[in-house]
Design a protein around this nucleic acid. Structure first.
Lengths: 351, 351
DNA sequence: CTGTTAGCGCCTTCAG
DNA sequence: CTGAAGGCGCTAACAG
């Protein structure tokens, strides 16, 4: 079965070519990596030179796998998101990657395909010493399988959503506050009968947004009646379906609050089909802001989540946990970080 | 320095607990993974049972790193994209992940942050036996650093763009054909003076789209004069700037073809600011289609790239190369796959 | 069917 | 400052 990969050049080969021992090769290569300056290194500059040129000559490449096995750490962190094609998740991942890179860690981005089973499977594999720590954006409301991974020794931090059955570090947006602000803005604009559209209340973020909605409405004197709630789902189709029902109502609400981007998108899609007048008499505020939000015809306000800041915070939390896990420190209490959202107002009169 | 990760349970521990040898443990665990049926396995069912229960009892977890070192393969493929927060790239990645999963491979998603230097750095690290093969969406027009990685023995396939200085397998969209179709549609609608907006012609995909534009225009009798070309950049700001200039022209083109989504987005953003009449007298066709494209007010046509199909094709190509690399086969000639685009017509009259 | 053995490539004491 | 030697955890011959 011939050779495996192209170059099978090892430290031994380099050592032989340079006329030194493998220990020296290892020293040269590693010391250099950590001390770019290269001062006060426990290896003669002559040996250094010879090792370097031998390595270059032979086209030597570190075998990270062997290094990881020896060190008991891959210096890699994973983020497991419900899907990849999602601006919010990926902005968060990009920020994480940057933050981790500064500490010499790589980021491994993986998807759970919006399925708790798939999530459990991926977590299991990732925890098999492939990564040192995992950041999870939970796909569902329960999290026993996530807790299990953490219990077995791989640090885990949750992002965006809390789950039942797991007590872990978490980084969340201020969902309650963000929804409160958006709905308050609608109220300030004079809208009174406002409905909350979409939302799977088994998910913590949807519940929190609903709570913010309720607080804003209660503050305006108008208590929230159940007729104000159009719950059900977090996807595009859900928004479409709910908007469809709203259009058929005899006395529809004056304004709508969409639980997230997907529901918002579905709602706007239905409105587009309904035509100009439906669009003009509908005002929407929505969680989530993207480069495309300004083009949503009915959108008056959107709540921007601090994706980058959340990514940075998550990166720091895992790294901290990874550090204590490796030095044997016992795990402290779970910490929950909550980051503020930002309300964005959208101009009208473009159509 | 205490324990490393939580459980340091190894095959040896399991072997001891089950009263068998490590070889048997390894057999049981691996055979089971490959033959779910579990027939005709070279190990007694009694031993199987004991190994399984011992493993469960001890909470044993495979150390993938050790396995990879032994096998000389990590069964992981990487995709290196210029950025993560990009629908097209991530749809492609999702499809790849699915396709790879079917063959028992994982996908490692990484970002080159739109920088050739960063791309070279990441490629170098990934090639250090961390992954068996790499799919690259090049960040720039030159690719010597990519070729070098391939030459050192890690199979590489290019996606979306070709680069100079590298002869590798590639999966591309039919950029020329897609642009041709879109511009032809504008011509069929009666528009005559059409401009090509945006485009870094050092990038192969921009060049190909420009060629398609040229062919369509030539076919309509109207040769493309330099006045039809508004080249320059592939980002949102570029689109914004170019649209800004267009609005200031005395005799602006009747319709516009945007080289990609980002440029399109920038153009629409500028149009939104310009107001209703500017929007109404502007017709745009653009490469790239997203769930948001239907909301772009000036958009008449968009060219959908076959992201998923490209991901699947790329996955198959790398896997094939990985297979031949491991069995020592020499590399065949580079193959270039070109997948058809799809023209999407957008309804008007919604504003 | 099962155990023994020999590394995969690297790092890191422990002695010079 | 440098070399020799012992594994990290796993799998795959090769013998029983």
């Amino acid at each position: 079965m011939a050779q495996k990969k192209g170059s099978n050049v090892t430290v031994r080969d380099v050592a032989k070519a340079a006329g030194v021992s493998t220990a020296t090769v290892s020293r040269v290569l590693n010391i250099d990596a950590s001390f770019p300056g290269g001062r006060s290194v426990p290896v003669s500059s002559e040996a250094r030179e010879r090792v370097f040129s031998a390595a270059a000559l032979l086209n030597y490449t570190t075998n990270h796998v062997a290094r990881s096995l020896k060190k008991g750490s891959t210096r890699t962190i994973a983020i497991l998101a419900p899907e990849l094609a999602n601006d919010f998740f990926m902005e968060l991942a990009e920020a994480m990657e940057k933050e981790l890179g500064a500490s010499g860690y790589m980021l491994f981005v993986a998807s759970s395909s919006n399925s708790a089973e798939e999530e459990a499977r991926r977590l299991g594999v990732l925890a098999e010493r492939i990564v040192d720590g995992i950041v999870v954006i939970p796909a569902a409301s329960r999290g026993e399988h996530i807790q299990k991974v953490a219990d077995r020794g791989t640090p885990v931090v949750l992002v965006d959503r809390l789950v039942e059955g797991a007590e872990l570090d978490a980084v969340l947006a201020d969902n309650e506050g963000g929804a409160f602000e958006a709905v308050s803005a609608l109220l300030a604009d004079g809208y009174r009968r406002i409905a909350f559209v979409g939302g799977d209340v088994s998910l913590s973020n949807a519940r929190e947004r609903l709570a913010g909605f309720g607080r804003a409405m209660a503050g305006a004197g108008s208590g929230v009646g159940s007729e104000a709630l159009r719950l059900g789902g977090m996807g595009i189709e859900d928004g479409y379906r709910l908007m469809d029902a709203l259009l058929a109502e005899a006395e529809p609400p004056e304004a709508l609050f969409a639980v997230n981007l997907m529901v918002h998108l579905g709602m706007e899609r239905r409105l587009l089909e309904a035509g100009k007048e439906a669009l003009e008499r509908t005002a929407i505020a929505s969680f989530d802001e993207t480069p495309y939000t300004p083009f949503m015809p009915a959108c008056r306000y959107s709540v921007a989540q601090p994706a980058a800041a959340m990514g940075v915070a998550a990166a720091r939390l895992v790294l901290e946990r990874v550090g204590s896990a490796q030095s044997g420190d016992d795990r402290g209490e779970p910490r929950i970080l909550r980051l503020p959202t930002r309300l964005v107002k959208h101009m009208r009169g473009r159509c």
